[in-house]
Design a binder for these strands. Structure first.
Lengths: 227, 227, 227, 227
DNA sequence: CATGAATGAGATTTCATTCAT
DNA sequence: CATGAATGAAATCTCATTCAT
């Protein structure tokens, strides 16, 4: 049996605008529950153990299907993996979109809440798992980063930038490059808690601790951009 | 402008004092070139491919030794892996220590140079590889993060914090919590370039681009902490 | 992460009454000839060479299947080993049951025939092999002795004891403890021939020699228990 | 009562006269303590784990010598193994010799004590281990059985036979073939306790239990051979 | 489509033995 | 003699994938 010789880079990096193919479960039959079942189990295992440590047998066993069935729905392990990743990125990360949509009378409060929301969302075990997978497989599956960026970061940045533009127009903030500001805001929100959680370092993730960091982010941001 | 709220007691971050065991190459016989040869090859492969994708046969082949020899020097694959990681962390990451030691007449220039240095060091392929490994194996090898923190982050933070304390004493900066400030500085320096490099996303790593981010970091930091 | 190294004693000793699990060949699909083929080859090799000296590759080669197939049918080498042992014990040792069932007019002749039958059955190469395996692996696989006892010794003893009870009731023998008498009869039958065969010592196993020992057993037994 | 039929010429049992080579530790240097140290450790491991499961590294480690030293004293693993077995057989099994040497006024008591002594000596863990090794390696190391027989069984049988001859001459027993009687006595002593201990089956080895079996042996023997 | 037995390559690890020092 | 690093063969077991049913 010829083994797959897949040392080649495999996947071309997408541009940020390119839309990842919305995989239909290979047949227009709709939401083939078996397919979802497989993706569900695969996801749990991939997120916990990573790509290499997860075997097709494990997935089949957990999904309650035969090993052969996996190959009826997905070409191979890599295909199942990317399908899982896109599905999870789509369904999970779009929650980040609404970071800046809860209106607050006070600007500082609004900023603080936005930062706190970002922190909470990004230390969720699933978000942490997706991040780890992207970083771990950056060489073998460069496309994952595109997917993550597309569904996760990109929307968040756009949302924040738009919001900052409004505040700039309203005279509450003075920001020339709103997109850079958005990136700064997002980066600063990762101070301490998100960073350490990604490394599995011991860290205080209590609401109080999250609020402290969010306070710091809001204050620093205002010092940087308040009139 | 609202004052920065960083009164919190700074929860215990890590066992910063705890010293990871300085592995002797199993015999005090000196530098045991075979051992280093193995570590060298293992390092190259682990950094490129990660833990699971790297096989002991590959390592033996590249090091020019027999498979059995690997097990005369290291108990098993995991042992070799952690030995490699500690050795590389020690020899490579201590360069981060000197981030803030080049004296500059101008404070802003000094800050900018520090940020630029951080960026340059952290997008070095080896530093990126070490980070990826820690994140990828955070579940299986939680100790890696401790090692990385000990040899890399901890020293940098202490160096920055000491420097900021001097500037505070000199009246050039107003910083109550110098350690938090150091963490902010380090986090902000990761904006855009480091972040995207870690994800293998296309990114401009030219000196000009690095300078731009460093400028931003310096300016923002001054806004946050200048008198 | 290295797999768990399970040096632990593996198998708990059964009680004598507990019935060894009647392994189905993992699927009720019938007689799964592949499975039997494997067991057949494994048996031949285990009996000749013992557990440690027999390799899975050898078994696969002799059975004409791939190495991987062995692990589709049996969890590991130890599992295959115990499966083989139970199957052989069941199919081979139950012949011992009928030791005392050939009716003879003369009691002494009957006893002599019984002893001769025991000797013949127990110096059969396969029975010798099974005994050697049990003794050799008594520490690593304590369950084997239970199996051997269950399928081999236990039935023989019961058969003999029942027979002696009949003769006692008929006044031909005076035996209080029929079970002890059965054990004595069985032990005495092992004098010289069985004993030395087990040790691979040179020994005369001719029918004449067997008859001599059987005579001795019958005579001694009658001296001990005749009225 | 039919007379015991033991007229047969007693086929040649073994090379009882043949003396196993008394290995000198390869150099006339006397009792090279290192050699004994190695044999001691090897013995412990071989007895516990058997031949195949014991590695040369284990032996070297336990003996506190280097692996290379093993090969300075013994040609290879098999050589070390047989050397161990002969040394242990010599030093341990000769205790069996004195089975019948404690004089007792009462013949029945003397027989009972002899049987009890045999049982006690043969369920000693070391004796059990030696027996298991012989049986386990009967194919690979047929010589072990010779050694065991020479140092263990042969002497015991001769001692018993001589003793029985005395009693025959004294008119206390009527035994034509004293050697066969000795073999019967030895075999009967193995009933229940020794047998089951060799198989690691649960068995009562209390002094009371040993006395019961010894009583049974003495009584049976007297019934067989008393005038 | 679903199944699960079959496969063969390759993974980690062990081990008896050698040899230069 | 003693040492211990080095070796290469072989052991057990895993895994992605295929294919007949």
């Amino acid at each position: 049996m010829p083994p797959l010789t897949q040392e080649q880079p495999l996947y071309r990096t997408m541009t940020q605008t390119e839309q990842p193919a919305q995989r239909p479960p290979r047949s227009g039959k709709g939401t083939s529950s078996k397919c979802e079942q497989i993706l569900q189990s695969a996801g749990q295992l991939f997120l916990q153990q990573g790509y290499e440590r997860t075997s097709m047998s494990q997935i089949a066993r957990m999904a309650g299907v035969s090993k052969g069935s996996l190959y009826n729905h997905f070409e191979n392990k890599a295909d199942l993996f990317t399908a899982f990743f896109e599905e999870r990125s789509r369904t999970r990360l779009n929650t980040l979109r609404s970071v800046s949509q809860a209106p607050q009378p006070d600007l500082r409060t609004a900023l603080q809440q936005a930062a706190a929301t970002i922190i909470r969302l990004m230390i969720d075990p699933e978000a942490i798992g997706l991040y780890r997978i992207v970083v771990a497989e950056a060489n073998e599956f460069p496309n994952l980063a595109d997917t993550l960026w597309h569904y996760g970061v990109s929307r968040t940045l756009t949302g924040l930038a738009d919001w900052f533009a409004e505040k700039h127009a309203a005279g509450q903030l003075i920001i020339k490059d709103t997109e850079l500001a958005a990136e700064q805001f997002l980066t600063m929100s990762q101070t301490r808690i998100i960073h350490r959680t990604r490394l599995s370092l011991p860290v205080d993730t209590s609401p109080a601790s999250i609020n402290d960091v969010a306070d710091m982010v809001a204050d620093s941001f205002l010092r940087m951009y308040a009139p």
